[in-house]
Amino acid sequence: MRPSIAKKIAIALLGWGIAIVMFFPIFWMFITGFKSEVDAVSTPPHLFFHPTLQSYAEVQSRANYWLFAMNSVIISVGGTVLALLLAIPAAYVMAFFPTHRTRGTLLWMLSTKMLPPVGVLIPIYLILRATGLLDTRTGLVLIYMLMNLPIVVWMLFTFFKEVPREILEAGRMDGAGRMGELRHVLMPLSLPGIASTGLLSLILCWNEAFWSLNLTSSRAAPLTAFIASFSSPEGLFFAKLSAASTLAVAPILIFGWLSQRQLVRGLTFGAVK
């Protein structure tokens, strides 16, 4: 039975309504970056105003955006690649060669995400201090890898479980070893899932603020630290903060926009059989 035109319009309106509500904070942040500080805090808020690039100029003059952006790219990509390198074999083993401890191990891995990060701040800080990794990209790459590993393993495990065992067995019959089976059969088949897992991990790394603020100072500070430097306890700062935030989220927004098809395909991989 085809839905009526009225129903189609209602669904379209609902969809647009939800999209606008979700996009509105980003839109407001974007336009606030072009306001003066007084306009940015005026009540009622102004939708029409004299646009100015003053806040962007101020942000550029006070901090080296490119250094922060480069740190964000290196740390996020590094953390994601390292997590995938460790998680792919782990998920493969747990998906195709489970033992009676597999389920418990998976749940234990997930449970580590329930620990508030501040609970382990001091031990991690001391370990990084002792190893000379404080305020280094290497230190943050390792932390981000550890932070996202449970989610990455879980997602890959779920994707791998969707691949029929028979296909792997056929590969084995053709003489593929474990590594060959993983590289030439399983990974190509699960590529949408691996890609979407990687994208999700990348976004989580990019947006992470707690560890980056606490474990870096100047050399390895990513864009989250860049944003934090424009919030002020005394004085108006919303326009500058919005300009800094727009600059910080722009790369990942553009990246997410370009890769949305891949992301959706991966997240719905195996959803309909």
């Binding site: 290196i74 740390i75 990509v77 590094g78 690649v81 390292l82 390198l85 000379g132 990794l133 280094t136 990209r137 290497t138 230190g139 790459v141 050399r219 390895a220």
Partner: peptide
């Protein structure tokens, strides 16, 4: 990519 990234990041460790 990983090798390049880790190489680049390890430079900043020291």
């Amino acid at each position: 990519t990983f090798a390049v990234l880790l190489g680049g990041s390890s430079l900043s460790a020291f």
